[in-house]
Design a protein around this nucleic acid. Structure first.
Length: 489
RNA sequence: GGCGCGUUAUCCAAGAGGCUAGGAGCCGGUCUGCAAAACCGUUAACGUCGGUUCGAAUCCGACACGCGCCUCCA
């Protein structure tokens, strides 16, 4: 029973052993704040949120750093387009990011630093790199000399020759080698700038993450995460900067989440096939989106479609329906009860006893949330079966069911699910559908009354007509002994 | 072109040498005036061709197809 994680650096699942026993330092690349976040950002956010949650559940004292890159060419371009300044753009999209992530139920990282608050650290690293012969000044810019760092590209397992064979590298006359990258860029007129030993300018992309991770986690730390698309060049360059400047290992375990696909193709800005988080949340509940993300292993591609989101909602509804049934049960007596459980009850008791170990086993295996969900569903099935057999449980049966509820809640905390009460979630799903109906709630309820009267008069033909009419309008009737309620189809 | 990943039933998706994953759906049942919902039960799979092995979805090789990175990306 020990946590194993897939390390991009070695290409293998490894036993996770932190630098300092009992603590974990984790840095995850946040976003460059120049636009609203899309579903790919949602995935990265949720994936590292559950990694954060699970590490804490496993007993670690976790320092989780997730940055905002709030100075970059894209932000400047956006500001120029809008005729505003980089700060206005950055602040607007930081606020939007915070709002989106909060809606998805992400826990706040320990620290959320901004690049522009770390200019001192950035400049210090560049100075160290120049002093160690890893960087050079060229006409107001500073570049990293990739040939000075023998380990360059160790994360993606390639060589400079491999990369150049792609033949899409631009030759810049300021660079000594085409793969050299900017650490500091001299500012052009009208651009934001900071003082530096090389003149006024701004940091290149990559260096801010080296500076902020070192500031909060030290020269060497345990986990660095981000999307797969950051492996090259971003993380590769971070390694070159941090290890070049500090002369020691930068990160022990590199974790990368897979892409969100649309029709099996990567969702990305350049392809234009992306959905923003706020668009999707107009149609789907945030926990449904989270559940969908958790339903595949974090390194696998995840195909985004309405059908898949609908299926995720059905699955989550099954879990919530069971929780709602559990919540309707009376509180069990404290006293012991010797009434033996039925065979079905014994089966459930066994599931309850094994639950925590199986859940931990799944999560210990490189955070396999999809497998963990399977274990939840198995317990739900056992519970439903037991409740079907003993609809009015008492004594020891109630205690067993209370135990089920506690375990589901416990797993829910790790997965970030079941954050609202089951009744509330189930009615929320219903309420979300009402806006899309042609009928008002009053009309629906009038029709239901008319149908009830028809049925009482044994006019089933008329009753069924009303039922079909409502169904065609998207309203599904639920008859029960207590009367008729309804749902959105 | 270089490097890497994937292909599991109708669909989504775990698993990684012998041990029921799971969800959605289909079908059957309970319930119902009949239905629906809910619940229960049930079904079925490992891209192709070879190899290793007592035994292969799982390991090895080839092939096919799909995807990713090599340019800004979570």
């Amino acid at each position: 029973m020990a946590l194993r994680v897939y390390n991009t650096l070695t290409g293998e699942k490894e036993l996770f052993v932190p630098l300092v026993s009992g603590t974990v330092g984790m840095y995850v690349c946040g976003v460059t704040v120049y636009d609203y976040c899309h579903i790919g950002h949602a995935r990265a956010g949720v994936v590292f949120d559950i990694i954060f949650r699970y590490l804490k559940y496993a007993g670690y004292d976790v320092t989780y750093v997730r940055n905002y890159t709030d100075i970059d060419d894209k932000i400047i371009n956006r500001a120029n387009q809008e005729g505003s300044d980089y700060r206005t753009i950055a602040d607007r999209y930081i606020a939007a990011f915070d709002e989106d992530m909060a809606r998805l139920g992400l826990q706040k990282p320990t620290v959320e630093p901004k690049a522009t608050d770390h200019m001192g650290g950035i400049i210090a690293i560049i100075e160290a790199l120049i002093a160690r012969g890893h960087a050079y000044v060229s006409d107001g810019d500073v570049y990293y000399a990739v040939e000075s760092f023998p380990d360059y590209l160790k994360l993606s397992g390639r060589t400079l020759e491999d990369m150049l064979a792609g033949a899409r590298v631009e030759l810049g006359d300021k660079k000594r080698h085409p793969m050299d990258f900017a650490l500091w860029k001299g500012s052009k007129p009208g651009e934001p700038w900071w003082h530096s030993p090389w003149g006024n300018g701004r940091p290149g992309w990559h260096i801010e993450c080296s500076a902020m991770s070192m500031e909060f986690l030290g020269k060497t730390f345990d986990i660095h995460g981000g999307g797969k698309d950051l492996v090259f060049p971003h993380h590769e360059n971070e390694i070159a900067q941090s290890e070049g400047a500090n002369g020691c290992q930068f990160v022990r375990y590199w974790l990368h989440n897979g892409f969100v696909n649309i029709n099996s193709e990567k969702m990305s800005k350049s392809l234009g096939n992306f959905f923003t988080i706020r668009e999707v949340l107009k149609k789907y509940d945030p926990e449904t989106l989270r559940f969908f993300i958790l339903s595949a292993h974090y390194r696998s591609p995840l195909d985004f479609s309405d059908q898949n989101l609908d299926e995720a909602q059905s699955g989550l509804e099954r879990l919530y329906t069971c929780l709602a049934a559990l919540d309707r049960l009376p509180v069990p007596d404290a006293g012991l009860d010797d009434t033996p459980l039925t065979a079905v009850g014994e089966e459930l008791r066994e599931k309850v006893e094994q639950f925590r170990a199986r859940f931990v086993e799944a999560m210990d295996d490189d955070f396999n949330a999809a497998q963990a969900l399977g274990i939840l569903f198995e317990m739900v099935r056992g519970t439903n079966r037991f409740l079907a057999e003993s609809p009015v449980p008492s004594g020891g049966s109630l205690q067993l069911l209370a135990h089920v509820r506690a375990l589901l809640t416990e797993a829910g905390v790790v997965l970030g699910l079941f954050t609202v009460s089951p009744e509330q979630w189930l009615t929320g799903i219903k309420a979300a559908g009402i806006g899309r109906l042609a009928l008002t709630v009053e009309q629906i309820e009038q029709l239901i009354v008319a149908r009830t009267e028809a049925r009482r008069a044994k006019d089933f033909k008329r009753g069924d007509e009303i039922r079909d009419e409502l169904l065609a309008a998207g309203v599904q009737l639920l008859d029960s002994a207590q009367g008729t309620t309804w749902n959105i189809k």
